[in-house]
């Protein structure tokens, strides 16, 4: 056990970034889960690490390329969804395997050998630099502002797209905005929890809050609270015992999910 870890600036940075991610991941996650797009996080994250890998090889800031790749992938998913209208999950499977295929080729080719692949797959608490922190901070601000400003529109579009259009909303615009922000969030979350576990951060706290939520607002707040408990607790445990942070955070949130089921057994989903 190593409590000195709290004294290290790198760990303080990690906790700060973890705190921000703990807010935005479930905040966008509520809309993703309720729109039955839970798997989109996996697809985007796998493409995003391909961008990160390419960034290392061509010596461009990796996180930025990761974001660009995730954005492109999010639009590709929307396009493919139209090509196979009754098989939405097919588009996600294609993009996901395409991303990981590209990433694996890049990671194993030439300069790619120098990249610490494990950090990107499983996350790392030592990998953050100042630029990363600023980007996470900016994404947090953007997502919170978006959700606060367009809460009403997001609610309508998520509840029932047809009814939303009938009340004069451009559902297409909001679909694009939601997917774009998801891509942004995913790219920044990868640094800490790793590509393999990103979507857990977006979906599991929401799964918990769906069990206990009394209203839509309450569900959103509870998702953030569950997410922060798992994130802070997970990072601290991982820091002290030197576990992989992503895995620890995700296991803790699954434990929370089981607890929320135990405490509200009478309610069925």
């Amino acid at each position: 056990m190593d409590l000195d870890i709290f004294l290290f600036p790198f760990f303080q940075k990690t906790l700060f970034v973890g705190f921000l991610i703990g807010i935005v991941a479930p905040l966008i996650g509520v809309f993703i889960v309720l729109r039955r797009l839970s798997m989109i996080g996996d697809a985007l994250s796998h493409v995003s690490i391909a961008g990160v890998a390419l960034g290392f090889i061509i010596e461009v800031y990796p996180l930025a390329l990761g974001i660009v790749f995730a954005l492109i992938a999010s639009f590709a998913i929307e396009k493919l969804r139209k090509a196979y209208p009754s098989y939405a999950e097919l588009s996600i499977a294609i993009i996901m395997s395409g991303g990981i295929a590209f990433a694996s080729v890049l990671f194993t080719s030439g300069k790619g050998f120098n990249i610490n692949v494990q950090d990107y797959l499983f996350g790392s608490i030592v990998a953050l630099n100042t630029a990363d922190i600023w980007i996470v901070f900016a994404v947090t601000l953007i997502v919170i502002t978006f959700v606060v400003i367009s809460y009403k529109e997001l609610f309508l579009v998520t509840l029932d797209e047809d009814a939303a259009s009938v009340s004069g909303l451009s559902t297409r615009l909001y679909n694009i905005l939601i997917t774009t922000l998801t891509a942004l969030v995913i790219s920044v979350v990868i640094k800490i929890v790793g590509a393999l576990l990103v979507s857990a951060l977006i979906t599991i706290p929401v799964a918990c809050s769906l069990v206990v939520g009394k209203s839509f607002r309450h569900t959103m707040w509870m998702a953030i609270i569950f997410s922060e408990i798992a994130m802070m607790g997970g990072l601290i445990i991982a820091g002290i015992w030197n576990f992989a942070p992503g895995g620890t955070v995700v296991l803790l949130s699954i434990a929370l999910l089981m607890l929320s089921f135990l405490f509200s057994r009478k309610k069925s989903l």
């Binding site: 039955r36 009403k152 609610f155 939303a164 809050s209 209203s215 839509f216």
Partner: peptide, 23 residues
């Protein structure tokens, strides 16, 4: 509608006003 949607009846009824409300 997704039957698991976590909204209350009141939230749903109020959403009828959302379309014409400005951001």
């Amino acid at each position: 509608m997704n039957p698991f949607f976590p909204a209350t009846v009141k939230e749903i009824v109020l959403s009828g006003l959302y379309g014409k409300k400005k951001m």
